[in-house]
Simulated assay, not measured.
Amino acid sequence: MTVPLSILDLAPVPTGSSTATALRNTIDLARRAEAAGYHRYWLAEHHLAPGVASSAPTVLIGQVAAATTRIRVGSGAVQLGHRTPLATVEEFGTIDALHPGRIDLGIGRSGGRPPATATDTTAPATARAVGGLLIPPPFTPGDLLRSPRFAAHATLLRQPGATTPPFTEQIDDLTALLAGTYRTADGIELHATPGEGADVELWLLGSSGGESARVAGALGLPFAANYHVSPGTVLAAVDAYRAAFRPSARLTEPYLMVSADVLVADDTATARRLAEPYGLWVRSIRTGDGAIAYPTPEQAAAHAWTDADRTLVADRLDTRFVGTPEAVTDRLHTLQKVTGADELLVTTITHDHADRVRSHDLLARAWY
């Protein structure tokens, strides 16, 4: 089955470039994605990372929506632990008022925490193949969670003394504000303007069989599972979502999107050369340094890898889909078949913008 393809963009900043160029490249890629037939264009939320410019996804969503006409535009994902439901509804309501019927509100539960945790015991601890799809052991982020830099991020992302309410309460408040049914505990009606009645498509995103997957299912919302971030727990996320699903006014049956990290080129050798910096970039994230400016293939080749380095990033490298259009589409079809995805969300990072554009273009041609 050929399902729709969508794009997740981090607005990567390559070495030797600037955030302004990265943001202009995002607008350019969105226009090209629309022309190529992609269904959605989502912007990620990352903070304090020299190599990622998408720290304000709502601003970028408005810019991308203004630069396109058909493609759906949204967040992958707004991290609700960093903001209030009211602020989120007002921001997306504003964008929807200007670009009605095209905006997706993708919500993530994380407040800066890595997607897979050491307490996630739903996936086996050894690599396995399921229907031809590699499922590596789950990443355990213990060292990252203890990083002083990680703690500093949390300090800047929240007001002093602020605490994040339970996720289910936040989602209840958000949906009530969108529907115009919000009431305080003592019965006061409050209405978000803009926001109330906005025609946004609400999604939840998750990387494990945890709360996000269960809440999405229980509320009958569409769900996006992260194979590209946490391939070791993707099947647990998918299973938890389906097990919890209850029909809603929005959906009578589950609707699942699964992400994948891809890089497509005209030949295998070129694809592998362009993919060389990815491991070094992932290493920078998982060591707590934050995403570095994306290296050139030559810079990556010069890195002296240790066994510990390779182990740290192995799951992400082994599950990235790199190669010719035919090879990558074959692997994407396997991902779709094994997970039962109704849609695939692909993300691609290269040092040169032209190579990223070319990758998405070649994939769309081969897929459709």
Rank of each mutant, 00 (worst) to 15 (best):
T175D: 07
L145I: 12
L145C: 02
A152D: 12
G142A: 14
R146D: 15
D173R: 03
L156I: 09
S147A: 09
R158N: 14
D172H: 03
A176S: 14
G142W: 13
R149A: 13
G142S: 15
L174N: 09
Q159M: 11
P148E: 12
P160I: 11
L178N: 05
Y182V: 06
L156A: 15
I171S: 00
A185R: 00
T155M: 02
T164E: 05
F167Q: 06
A152Y: 02
L157E: 14
Q170D: 04
G187H: 08
Y182E: 12
R158M: 13
H153I: 14
T184V: 03
L178T: 08
I171W: 01
A154I: 15
A151Y: 04
T163Y: 00
I171A: 01
Y182F: 15
F150C: 01
D173Q: 07
D143N: 07
Q159E: 15
R149S: 14
A154C: 13
T184H: 00
L157N: 10
L145V: 09
L177M: 11
G161P: 05
D143W: 04
L178K: 03
Q159Y: 10
R158L: 14
L144I: 01
S147C: 08
T175L: 05
P165L: 01
R149V: 14
A185E: 15
L157S: 08
D173G: 02
T184P: 01
L178Q: 04
S147N: 13
A179G: 06
T175C: 02
G161T: 09
A162Q: 11
F167Y: 10
A176P: 08
Q170M: 09
L178H: 04
D173P: 00
L144D: 04
G187E: 13
T168R: 02
G180Q: 09
P166M: 01
L144C: 04
R146S: 15
R158Y: 12
L178V: 12
P166E: 11
G187W: 06
G187Q: 08
E169M: 07
T155P: 00
P160W: 14
A151L: 10
T175P: 00
G180L: 05
D186W: 07
Q170Y: 10
T175W: 00
P160L: 13
T155L: 03
A185Y: 04
E169I: 05
T181S: 06
H153R: 11
G161Q: 08
P165S: 04
R149N: 15
G180Y: 08
L174G: 02
